[in-house]
Structure formats: structure tokens, C-alpha cells
């Protein structure tokens, strides 16, 4: 059913702290590990040990450099997976009803038994959150580990997405972003959580916490400007060489 639910009971999602993420890619590995052997078909790799490896991942960590107008630049590690958007464009474009957004918790899922692998949902997603698997030919995406979070066979502390459970830095938080009083909602309020590409109008549920401002003087002092005109011996040499 590709009509988006008018109202969801919960908005389960992730809050990712860009200030805390150390870029270790443990979430990427944990995600691939859990999801390749649970929900739906495996996350395949092709030519994994060869010269041109390519594989399906539901979570990837980019690294960026932010260059402020003044002061030292900063490296930011940037994990990116499905944002389980409230206005999910990937759902409404699906011709078969394979893509859907759950009314009970807002999770966006793909029913692989109905997917034709047309790829239109991946085109519709601005975040690159969906990847067509090269072996099974069906669309893969983050399930928010729907098979962990409600799984009573797991210990209670394990009933969170694999990426959250594994993060050694505590940069990933899971909870109900529809509940004003939940820990994640408070975190978003306190730290000024933000949406990615708001101009796309997708209303993402997942939020990103921006960098905290650094204390003065902790950064590397800016280098002095490199002299544009040589002085002393070098100036003399420069003149001589120009005349030769």
C-alpha cells in the first residue's frame, strides 16, 4: 500500500551525533552482519576479494571536512542510512505496493515478495538510502532492525538497531521521535537536531546533531601568511636569477 499513513502512532528513528561519531564504520559492519542474515534476501557482495568489489549496504559512513572562514578545519564523520521520512517519496512512487510506511511506528519497509526491482524508489530518495541488490534484484533498505527492536527472544538491551547497539562512541540513539518526552526528542531539542536536505520536503524522522562549538584556543593556530616577497639573500638571488 503506497498511500502514506495519515497519522503514525509512533515515529521510531535514529538520532546521530556528528560531534561524537569517530568514523570507525562499526555500525556499517554491524548493519551488514545483522541484515544479511535476517530480514529478506542477503546483502550481497560481488567480486568481494577481487579488483572491483561492489556490494549492498544499508548504512554508509561518509567523511567530510568543514572549512570555517576563520580557524582550523574540522573532519566530520557522517553515517547515512534511511531517515524513515514522514513524507517518504520512495513509498508513493512504488508501482507494486512493495514499499510501505507502517502506521504503528512509521518504519519504511520493502516487501520483497512484491518488489519488481524497477529502482524508481531509489531514484525518488534524495539521500541514497536504497540500494538495489545486485544478486537478488530487489530493493534493500534500512529496516530500523524491525526484527530486533520487537524481538522478545533477545535480551532487552539488544532490542535496538544493530548499528546503535554496536556504536562504541555512543553516537547513535534510537527512540520515538513522535513522543515529546522521549530521550531522543529531548536530545534533539537540547542539541538543535537538524534535518538533511530540508529543501527536498521529505520531513525526515531521523535527526542529526550538529558539532558542538569548540573552546577558544583549542584549535591549531592559523599559520602565518607565507611571504610573497623574498628577503635578504633570497631576494638577492631572486634578482640575479631574473637577470641571467
Amino acid at each position: 500500500m503506497t498511500l502514506l499513513p495519515e497519522k503514525v502512532d509512533k515515529k521510531l528513528g535514529l538520532v546521530i551525533d556528528l560531534d561524537t561519531c569517530v568514523g570507525c564504520h562499526a555500525c556499517v559492519v554491524a548493519c551488514k552482519g545483522w541484515n544479511t542474515e535476517n530480514y529478506g534476501s542477503a546483502l550481497s557482495d560481488k567480486d568481494a576479494y577481487g579488483g572491483d568489489p561492489v556490494g549492498t549496504f544499508l548504512n554508509r559512513v561518509h567523511s567530510y571536512e568543514v572549512e570555517p572562514p576563520l580557524g582550523a578545519s574540522q573532519t566530520v564523520h557522517f553515517p547515512k542510512s534511511c531517515l524513515h521520512c514522514e513524507d517518504a517519496p520512495c513509498v508513493t512512487v512504488c508501482p507494486t505496493g512493495a514499499s510501505y510506511k507502517r502506521e504503528e511506528d512509521g518504519i519504511v519497509l520493502v516487501n520483497e515478495d512484491a518488489c519488481i526491482g524497477c529502482g524508481l524508489c531509489a531514484w525518488a530518495c534524495p539521500y541514497g538510502a536504497r540500494e538495489l541488490d545486485g544478486v537478488s534484484g530487489v530493493m534493500k533498505k534500512c529496516t530500523l532492525c524491525v526484527d530486533r527492536i520487537y524481538n522478545e527472544n533477545l535480551a532487552e538491551e539488544d532490542r535496538v538497531p544493530a548499528c546503535v547497539r554496536t556504536c562504541p562512541a555512543g553516537a547513535r540513539h534510537f527512540g520515538d521521535l513522535g513522543d515529546e518526552e522521549s530521550d531522543v526528542s529531548k536530545l534533539v531539542r537540547e542539541r538543535g537536531g537538524m534535518d538533511l536536505m530540508p529543501e527536498m520536503g521529505t520531513k525526515p524522522v531521523n535527526k542529526y546533531l550538529p558539532l558542538r562549538s569548540r573552546d577558544e584556543g583549542l584549535g591549531v593556530p592559523a599559520l602565518e601568511e607565507v611571504a610573497s616577497e623574498p628577503t635578504g639573500f633570497m631576494r638577492w638571488l631572486d634578482k640575479v636569477l631574473e637577470k641571467v
Binding site: 556528528l18 561518509h62 567523511s63 567530510y64 571536512e65 568543514v66 572549512e67 570555517p68 572562514p69 578545519s73 574540522q74 573532519t75 566530520v76 557522517f78 537538524m194 534535518d195 538533511l196 536536505m197 530540508p198 529543501e199 542529526y208 550538529p210 558539532l211
Partner: peptide
Amino acid sequence: SATGLGSRGRVRMF
């Protein structure tokens, strides 16, 4: 806008 880091400065792929 894609990373939300624009208020800090120029962002480039690292």
C-alpha cells in the same frame, strides 16, 4: 544543506 554543516563553513568531501 545535505550535511547540515553549512553554518560552520564550507564543506568538502574528505
